[in-house]
């Protein structure tokens, strides 16, 4: 009992460490690739780690009350929770409970924590940014919902792990037409979930001073950087798992080698998802909030609904 619990704790710690590290690398890659598209050199890849260390080592911090602190902690806590449910090769801890709907919700609730913290500061920019973030959430929810429905109906299960296992024998999800449509819609949704252009009006830096983030500084912002890293990892991981086949390598005799190989394959898939988002983000200007809502309620919704209906037939 005790040893198994220690084992789980150790595993969780390693997963967390890996996710955080890779998440920070992803953030670095985003900055470098964007810089290269701009024909700049860009920062070193470990730059986000330096930023986070700097933010955490600030010598004075401010707070606007209990909710301001708790919202930030809640955001990171919920992200860690979400991470534990997503299958990561064959080593995820709670993958038996990794339910599609649960994970979809868990990937959204960190935002609720950030909103709570931002709003409790009383800064008008934060209020405005939260409003925009919520409306973006509302806009993306329709295609996202249809995409998840399409998946669940196609595989007739809600377990992410079973979906991954089904893909090992039957081929990637995106090789089937209904799920290809769902994947396209979900990828457009991911753009907003990453907060990349053209759907980054919620943090519009020049206009509303980063919106919800305006009052965060020092260690609060540092924790949110860590949260962002893990969320980036979790979101790309979720996409690779449900649409791009995940990775369950059993070719080697040693389980450690198998795990490493699965992680490597997953990493490549995650990078592919990420790079698409960066490319789109780097070349588009941003939509206003009603344009974004109208966009999401038109094409991605039609695509995803078509996928869902095809999957149900």
């Amino acid at each position: 009992m005790i040893t198994s619990m220690i084992g789980i704790a150790l595993k969780a710690f390693l997963i967390l460490l890996y996710a955080t590290f890779v998440g920070f690398m992803f953030m670095g890659i985003i900055r470098i690739v964007t810089a290269r598209i701009h024909r700049r050199v860009g920062p070193p890849i470990y730059q986000p780690i330096l930023d986070t260390i700097k933010l955490l080592s600030k010598k004075s911090n401010i707070t606007h009350g209990l909710i301001y602190d708790f919202g930030v902690l809640y955001a990171l806590g919920a992200t860690i929770l979400a991470l534990m449910f997503i299958p990561l090769g064959s080593i995820s801890i709670l993958r038996a409970y990794g339910d599609l709907i649960l994970i979809t919700f868990l990937l959204e609730i960190p935002m609720l924590g950030i909103m709570f913290a931002a709003m409790s500061s009383g800064n008008p920019w934060a209020g405005l940014g939260s409003q925009r973030a919520l409306l973006t959430l509302l806009a993306v929810q329709v295609p996202l919902g249809f995409a998840i429905v399409a998946l669940a109906e196609f595989y007739d299960t809600f377990s992410t792990y079973q979906i991954v296992m089904a893909q090992q024998t039957a081929g990637w999800s995106i090789t089937y037409l209904p799920l290809l449509l769902a994947a396209v819609a979900y990828d457009i949704v991911l753009q907003a979930m990453f907060g990349k252009e053209p759907f980054d009006i919620m943090i519009a830096p020049g206009e509303i001073s980063l919106g919800p983030m305006v009052e965060f500084g020092g260690k609060h912002m540092g924790i949110l950087q860590i949260q962002h890293a893990i969320a980036l990892f979790a979101e790309t991981l979720f996409f690779s798992n449900i649409f791009l086949g995940g990775a369950v390598v059993t070719a080697f005799a040693s389980s450690i080698l198998n795990t490493l190989a699965s992680l490597g394959i997953l990493l490549i898939k995650q990078l592919a998802v990420l790079l698409i988002a960066i490319f789109i983000g780097a070349i588009f200007p941003r939509f206003t909030i009603d344009q974004a809502a109208r966009f999401y309620w038109k094409w991605p919704t039609i695509i995803a609904a078509a996928g869902a209906i095809l999957a149900a037939l």
Binding site: S209, M213, E215, F216, G217
Partner: peptide, 8 residues
């Protein structure tokens, strides 16, 4: 460049 002074 960072528009919010709290994290600058």
């Amino acid at each position: 460049a960072n528009p919010a002074p709290r994290m600058a």
